[in-house]
């Protein structure tokens, strides 16, 4: 790993830029928790003093608890189903040669690119033409469409990365297909599965656009926030709720990315060790 000497030279200007960039990236979001502890219904400087009354206020609200329960239920189901579908899709894509494979992958990635509003209204039209009432089920289906590309994108590198000869060895030693998958393939792709579960849960938990079109009377937390945004006196409570959601998302995603990346890094390290 000998690199050109000039590349090794630290570039002070770029370094400063990078740090400023990161600060600007995180700063706006940090104002939400900051003001959620402010003892005033106005979000402005100077701050009035420390309080946790907005959190206490949230705790006593039935509607928040109902929305939280809906969000958790939808999120759990969507993460499990989309990761399960992602596993079979990633397995099929890496294991078998199929004509039209890249077209399918591109098709599956469409929800990442096409504006959310278009998928939202398209699904709303479908659901209403079929006469299905809007409910948490339609919300979950919308989330599934958004989460599936993320699940596949997270899982594909894991399935691509592993050594097929391990599976062949297991088969040669007499394990059947199912046990080979369970005892050889699964442990190798497990970090990807955990990462996918955490990421898809977070996406579903935070999803707003599809939910906006597809939810009936039962709302999720983001919809609850949206409906409360028009009342200025609800602002501090919304800040408190947002703080909780942000904290949860940051923790889940950090763990997911770390687990997902860690596997890849470990492979790279062992590959370099094997190579030298």
């Amino acid at each position: 790993m000998k690199e050109g000497t000039y590349i090794k030279q630290p570039n002070r200007a770029l370094q400063v830029y990078a740090i400023v960039f990161l600060i600007v990236l995180y700063l706006p979001v940090l104002f939400i928790p900051l003001f959620s502890f402010n003892d005033s219904i106005y979000v402005r400087f100077p701050m009035q003093g420390l309080t946790i009354q907005w959190y206490v206020d949230l705790w006593t609200r039935e509607s928040v608890w109902a929305a939280l329960q809906n969000s958790l239920t939808v999120g759990l189901w969507v993460s499990v189903i989309s990761t399960g579908l992602g596993v079979v899709a990633a397995r099929a894509i890496t294991r078998y040669r199929m004509p039209g494979q890249s077209a399918i992958v591109t098709f599956a990635m469409l929800p990442l690119i096409v504006p959310g509003v278009i998928f939202g209204v398209a699904l709303l039209v479908l659901v209403s033409r079929l006469g299905i009432p809007l409910s948490l089920y339609t919300v979950a289906f919308g989330h599934l469409i958004i989460c599936l590309p993320f699940a596949i994108a997270t899982l594909l590198p894991r399935f691509e990365g592993f050594d097929r000869s391990m599976e062949e060895a297991s088969a040669d030693l007499g394990e059947n297909g199912w046990w080979t998958f369970w005892r050889v393939t699964f442990p190798m792709v497990a970090p990807g599965i955990v990462a996918s579960l955490l990421l898809t849960f977070t996406i579903s938990f935070d999803e707003f656009i599809m939910t906006f079109f597809l939810s009936g009377t039962d709302t999720t937390l983001p919809i609850y926030i949206w409906t409360q945004l028009r009342f200025p006196r609800e602002f501090p409570a919304i800040l408190a709720l947002s703080t909780i959601i942000l904290a949860l998302s940051f923790v889940l995603v950090f763990v997911a990315l770390w687990i997902g990346r860690l596997g890849v890094v470990r492979e790279q390290v062992s590959a370099t060790n094997a190579g030298s």
Binding site: V29, L199, T202, P222, I225, I238, L246
Partner: peptide
């Protein structure tokens, strides 16, 4: 990391 957090809240 910020990309994965709620879009609505980042706009908010």
């Amino acid at each position: 990391l910020p990309f994965w957090t709620s879009y609505l809240l980042r706009v908010f």
